[in-house]
Computed example of a mutant assay.
Amino acid sequence: MKVLAAMSGGVDSAVAAARAVDAGHDVVGVHLALSRQPGTLRTGARGCCTIEDSMDARRVAGMLGIPFYVWDFSERFAADVVDDFVAEYSAGRTPNPCMRCNERIKFAALLDKALALGFDAVATGHYASIVTDADGNRELHRAAAWAKDQSYVLGVLTAEQLEHAMFPLGATPSKAEVRAEAAARGFDLAQKPDSHDICFIPDGDTRGWLAGRVGAEPGPIVDRSGAVLGTHEGAAAFTVGQRKGLSIGYPAEDGKPRFVLEVRPKTNEVVVGPREALAVAEIAGSRYTWAGIPPQSSSFDCEVQIRAHADPVPAVAAVTEHELVITPVDPLDGVAPGQTAVVYVGTRVLGQCTIDRTVSAVPVPA
């Protein structure tokens, strides 16, 4: 097959590209330039897709003897990931920019361009597996190394995208084995730290970065009954489940800490309450997709995962006329609109939805 290897400059994508070459595929490496302004993406251990990363990827491609290109996706990244991040926070939601990047950049813009150029598949360094069922349908499954499993952030992939996706690291038992393989191949980046955090916020100050784009107008901090407890310096900087930074100045009647329960951008209010009020009995989203063949029933047992590193929990999912509604067997803690709920059946990723609304497990006091 003719394979386009997405090479971020990290050890995982380097080894994935090498394995695609070893498998006999006709491989071309590509690095995505996501910003035209140096310094606007995080560098070193905390970011990805920087100038240094492109140089690391180019060196690996040279060692593998494959063609290598840098594609400028900065405008698409700004519109589909950065602007979306700002818009979601402006609406009081908590977005996942890595999920949007996988959905709209790596497996939409990149894959579309790859197919237009005659490639059969895009290979990445994600830890996930693709399984073909008896009828030839491709399914997305968890990786063998559950500690490194990245199937959650790939839950946005559609059946059509899975047809052209390749994850050479899916069956690898550990990240240590990948690093050892990189070292054995002579890759200088064998011990390069993993990237993390939000790549387009260079200094890591999400609150300050948002204030410069969303604004930071002072407003009230209220409890669930509407009583004003204090003031904040900008509602967009808060997210559900947050405890620090409230600065109310006096304790709750029971002496327990308060947590952010809701952000209301229209009224510029931050709603706070006790930890138990973070419990959510139901989540739902109208923006949902299926990673392969959709479920045959409108209601089914499953597991749901709401964060990349959270444990999946038993739930019942139901497809209504407009929503995917998920009811966990036990209430979930601290779920925010804007997060992604990924639905599993066993190790298989069945689909996902962006959470639009939640239903509290704890009634509002009269």
Rank of each mutant, 00 (worst) to 15 (best):
209 W>V: 07
209 W>N: 04
210 L>M: 03
211 A>L: 07
211 A>G: 08
212 G>N: 03
213 R>S: 10
214 V>R: 07
214 V>I: 13
216 A>F: 01
216 A>L: 04
219 G>Y: 12
219 G>H: 10
221 I>R: 00
222 V>H: 04
224 R>S: 01
224 R>M: 08
225 S>K: 15
226 G>E: 06
226 G>A: 08
226 G>N: 10
228 V>I: 15
229 L>T: 04
229 L>G: 07
230 G>M: 00
233 E>L: 10
233 E>Y: 04
234 G>N: 03
235 A>S: 14
237 A>R: 14
237 A>Q: 15
237 A>P: 02
240 V>Y: 08
240 V>A: 07
242 Q>K: 14
242 Q>N: 14
242 Q>C: 14
243 R>I: 00
244 K>V: 13
244 K>L: 14
245 G>K: 05
249 G>K: 09
249 G>L: 10
251 P>A: 03
251 P>C: 03
256 K>D: 06
258 R>D: 04
260 V>G: 02
261 L>P: 01
262 E>C: 09
262 E>S: 08
264 R>Y: 00
264 R>S: 05
265 P>C: 02
265 P>W: 02
266 K>T: 06
266 K>F: 05
269 E>L: 04
271 V>E: 10
273 G>L: 04
273 G>H: 09
275 R>W: 10
275 R>G: 12
275 R>H: 14
276 E>R: 12
279 A>T: 03
279 A>M: 11
280 V>L: 02
280 V>N: 06
281 A>V: 12
282 E>P: 05
283 I>K: 08
283 I>P: 07
284 A>G: 14
285 G>M: 13
286 S>I: 05
287 R>Y: 14
288 Y>S: 10
288 Y>H: 15
289 T>E: 08
290 W>L: 01
292 G>T: 06
293 I>T: 15
294 P>N: 11
295 P>W: 01
300 F>A: 02
301 D>K: 08
303 E>M: 13
304 V>D: 02
304 V>Y: 01
305 Q>C: 09
305 Q>V: 04
307 R>K: 11
308 A>K: 12
309 H>N: 14
309 H>I: 09
309 H>G: 06
309 H>Q: 12
310 A>W: 13
312 P>Y: 06
312 P>F: 09
312 P>W: 09
312 P>L: 08
313 V>N: 03
314 P>W: 09
315 A>T: 09
315 A>D: 07
317 A>W: 04
320 T>D: 08
321 E>A: 12
321 E>K: 04
323 E>F: 11
323 E>A: 14
323 E>H: 15
326 I>P: 12
326 I>A: 11
330 D>H: 10
330 D>M: 10
330 D>K: 10
331 P>L: 01
331 P>W: 07
331 P>R: 02
332 L>S: 07
332 L>N: 08
337 P>C: 13
337 P>G: 13
339 Q>Y: 13
341 A>T: 04
345 V>K: 06
345 V>F: 00
346 G>L: 03
346 G>A: 03
347 T>G: 15
347 T>I: 05
